[in-house]
């Protein structure tokens, strides 16, 4: 039997990798993929704790997380297309109309 701490450590590794991608990458698409990776790390934590406590509430939460991630990807990619159409770039630092 694999102890639950292994799964939690794996989720922590995945979350850290995703966080590194979000802070260091400047391509909007890759940043989106890293956000998906972080959501998956959260899902893994939910499932590990659900397995450890023996009830299935974590499975329901993971289901909702997957649905929210699908919605987020659809809207986010639509925004990426709109930005590329109006500004012609995918570099995050060049999209700063609201900041200036």
């Amino acid at each position: 039997m694999v102890p639950s701490s292994y799964y939690l450590a794996l989720a922590a590794i995945l979350f850290s990798i995703g966080l590194f991608g979000v802070v260091s990458k400047r391509n909007i698409l890759i940043v989106f993929m890293c956000i998906e990776l972080m959501l998956n790390a959260a899902n893994l934590t939910f499932l590990a704790f659900a397995r450890q406590s023996g009830n299935m509430a974590g499975h329901a939460i993971a289901f909702f997380v997957i649905a929210v991630a699908a919605a987020e990807a659809a809207v986010g990619l639509a925004i990426v297309i709109a930005i590329y159409r109006t500004r012609g770039t995918l570099h995050m630092d060049e999209v700063r109309v609201l900041r200036d």
Partner: peptide, 20 residues
């Protein structure tokens, strides 16, 4: 990010190894 991982890992170690 390594710092974040270290913090989470410490918290995991603090809970101790739990068998499923």
């Amino acid at each position: 990010c390594v710092g974040v991982f270290a913090v989470i890992y410490r918290a995991i170690l603090a809970t101790g190894p739990r068998m499923m």
